[in-house]
């Protein structure tokens, strides 16, 4: 018997599907007969629904481009995936060291460190022990209404922190007990790599949805890509559409990957306390690139709300939309 409050779960991935689906629907409604042909690939990448909208080019070229993108996604999953035991990241977590990391893994670690510094430690790839502690707790007690015991959280917290992470180009090394997760940044990184790959192939007008959303160029008809923002799982917010041209959007919502039916315990941890953050229902970030949008949406979700304007202010061209549990939205910087 469940004694906790009823589940309030809607996946973040689901939200993005709705978002991009809306974009496609908006587009199909608007395309004039003279508009350039476009190809829509829909499938999964990184375990979630994924989509590519390629404008222009012949079908066989688009097919080849899609295959190249999927190869790139597969290649990067072999680097960053936590659920593949043979990925570079899993091997790093298992062995504590990784020799001769790929450029991608090395660069993602450095980007993570940069964003971590710039957000005052709100973004932290070393929180994986916390996730493991929560996952173990809720696996052992599926009906639990409370999180892991404080001692377990404190113990996991002691294994979190970038200071004991050694990143050198020829070897990444973790202190004993440490583990990394790229789940707050890898999808953005992969989205960017796919977008770059398509641009190198000559595509100038593309929407990439590989975990996060990235647009190249405007949509086929002149007004830019229109991205509908879904209401967060736990709050009734007004529908909102954001225009997107040559930029990226990422959202974080704790309820998307909750451990418990009430979604009080989820994957977005405050690195200092080891608790799931609960200031917002969702955080959406618009940024030039998806890697940054992804990392910042994670960081802002767990950062102390008072510091958010200062963090956002560091990044030119970044816009944050904070959805409160009431459904109200805050825009930073204010329009």
């Amino acid at each position: 018997m469940r004694t906790c409050s009823p589940p309030l779960i809607l996946s973040r991935r689901r939200a993005l599907t709705i978002v991009a689906g809306t974009a496609a629907a908006l587009m199909t409604g608007r395309v004039a007969p003279a508009a350039p042909a476009f190809h829509v690939w829909e499938g999964t990448a990184l375990g979630a629904p994924a989509r590519l909208i390629l404008v222009g080019a012949a079908e066989h070229a688009s097919k080849a481009a899609v295959r190249a993108c999927l190869d790139e996604v597969e290649r990067l999953e072999r680097e960053f995936s936590l659920y593949r035991p043979d990925s570079a990241l899993s091997r790093l977590n298992a062995n504590g060291v990784l020799d001769r990391p790929s450029l991608d893994l090395f660069r993602l670690l450095r980007l993570s460190a940069t964003v971590g510094e710039q957000t005052g430690g709100a973004f932290d790839v070393t929180v994986q022990p916390l996730w493991q502690a929560y996952a173990d707790h809720f696996t052992a007690h599926p009906d639990a209404c409370s999180g892991p015991p404080p001692a377990a959280i404190a113990e996991a917290c002691s294994r979190v922190g970038c200071r004991r992470l050694s990143v050198r180009s020829e070897r990444i090394a973790l202190a004993p007990g440490m583990a990394l997760t790229f789940n707050g940044i890898a999808q953005g990184y992969i989205t960017d790599r796919v977008a770059d790959l398509l641009r190198a192939r000559g595509y100038t007008n593309v929407l990439v949805e590989m975990g996060e959303i990235r647009a190249l160029g405007p949509a086929p008809a002149e007004p830019p890509w229109s991205i509908a923002l879904a209401a967060p799982p736990s709050a009734a917010a007004e529908p909102l559409s954001l225009p997107l041209r040559d930029g990226a959007i990422a959202s974080s919502a704790g309820a998307a990957t909750a451990f418990d039916p009430a979604a009080r315990f989820h994957h977005l941890f405050v690195p200092d306390t080891g608790r799931s953050a609960d200031a917002f229902a969702a955080v959406t970030v618009v940024a030039p690139r998806a890697t940054l949008a992804d990392a910042l949406s994670t960081a802002l979700y767990v950062a102390p709300p008072s510091r958010i304007p200062a963090i956002v202010g560091r990044y030119p061209g970044v816009l944050a939309l904070l959805t409160l549990h009431s459904g109200q939205r805050l825009r930073i910087p204010a329009a």
Binding site: I9, E42, G43
Partner: peptide, 22 residues
């Protein structure tokens, strides 16, 4: 081979199943 579907001109209804909530 495509790990999905490729359609021309319009978004098809057929897609991978959505990932289950939670």
């Amino acid at each position: 081979t495509l790990r999905g579907t490729l359609a021309t001109g319009a978004a098809p209804d057929q897609a991978y199943p959505a990932v289950i909530s939670g």
